[in-house]
């Protein structure tokens, strides 16, 4: 019990005390930027984890839903002066709504057909970002000057922005964690394993896939809003196919089906290229190589699902099985 509590407290301390302390000690704008970008991508990877890692749907257009969130937040903020407090949920809901619309016809597709359909959807949305100039400003992108207004508080300091972004990211990851490390998560996993068999167990395969897809898009939308507010400028290329692949690589490298894996993968693919910055602009080659290496040598990823599940059970303990009684067999 104390161990669970310790891990939870440790995570909170790390995110909200240690990292900010380090950032303040160095006090360079660049470091704050990296930290918030990492937080945004952790959230993105965690949201893709739900649909690709757990439900097993290979999604090649995730960045487009992230883009919808970013555009909704940025356009609401810059054109209509609707700030962060409303813009954030609006971004998530808009992404989820579009996901719902495109999911209606495509959810029955399986395996690579689904992957290709999501690729096409992602590209169509990208073309809209790029070419619907009257709304999205086209290739010029959208500038967003306003800071984060958080229920009336104007947050403009870099450390303040870090806190807001990280808090939203942490809260979302906790929600995603509970979704996947639960019986609901087991239902999603059964789709990945054998959807016909899951149907025989009374699971409505299409509806469940759709839920995973829509929930995932919601969180991608939130990540988009965070991105728009932290960088202050978005353009279509932030949401193109290679961004989708970057997020996919994070999930694959960390280990498909493992949430800690997705988080580690995101940190790795954001932070390592920064360390390697001196080598030149090799970031994307690096992404490709790491992804290839992971598929070939670590088919279960850095932090594979099974070990992740053990980890989850240790942390959640009785929370998972829902019964605190003496069913200790095997839940060590």
């Amino acid at each position: 019990m104390s161990k669970q509590l310790l891990t939870k407290v440790g995570m909170v301390v790390l995110l909200f005390v240690v990292v900010p302390a380090v950032l303040m000690a160095f006090d360079r704008g660049y470091f704050y930027q990296i930290a918030t970008i990492a937080a945004v991508f952790v959230l993105l990877a965690a949201s893709l984890h739900l649909v690709t890692g757990v439900a097993g749907l290979l999604h090649l257009g995730h960045a487009a839903f992230y883009g919808i969130g970013a555009y909704v937040a940025a356009l609401l903020g810059s054109e209509l002066e609707i700030g962060f407090t409303l813009g954030l949920p609006a971004a998530g809901l808009a992404a989820a709504f579009v996901a719902f619309l495109v999911a209606l016809p495509t959810m029955r597709l399986i395996s690579i057909y689904f992957a290709v359909a999501t690729l096409a959807i992602g590209q169509m949305l990208y073309l809209i970002f790029l070419n619907w100039v009257s709304v999205t400003k086209g290739p010029n992108g959208v500038l967003l000057f306003s800071g984060i207004d958080f229920f009336g508080f104007d947050i403009e300091s870099e450390i303040g922005i870090y806190y807001v972004v990280t808090a939203i990211m942490a809260l979302s990851v906790v929600v995603l964690y509970r979704l996947t490390n639960s019986y609901y998560g087991n239902a999603l996993r059964s789709l990945r394993e054998d959807d016909q068999c899951a149907a025989a167990m009374g699971i409505n395969v299409t509806v469940l896939k759709m839920q995973a897809f829509v929930i995932s898009a919601f969180f991608a939308g939130l990540a988009g809003a965070l991105w728009a507010y932290t960088t202050g400028y978005i353009s279509p290329n932030d949401f193109n196919f290679s961004q989708s692949i970057l997020v996919l690589a994070m999930v694959v490298v960390g280990g498909l089906g493992s949430l800690p894996g997705a988080v580690i993968g995101a940190l790795l693919l954001i932070l390592l290229p920064e360390v390697l910055r001196d080598v030149g602009d090799t970031r994307n080659i690096f992404v490709g190589l790491v992804m290839f290496g992971a598929i070939l040598f670590l088919p279960k990823g850095l932090f594979g699902e099974v070990s992740a599940l053990r980890f989850a059970r240790r942390i959640l303990g009785s929370g998972w099985s829902g019964s605190a009684d003496n069913r200790e067999v095997g839940w060590e």
Partner: peptide, 21 residues
């Protein structure tokens, strides 16, 4: 199918980015 889809995807990134470099 899915492993090779991703491995060929990774290869394509490496090839494209190398050319760009």
């Amino acid at each position: 199918r899915e492993a090779t889809l991703m491995s060929s995807l990774a290869m394509s990134i490496v090839a494209r980015e190398s050319l760009e470099l």
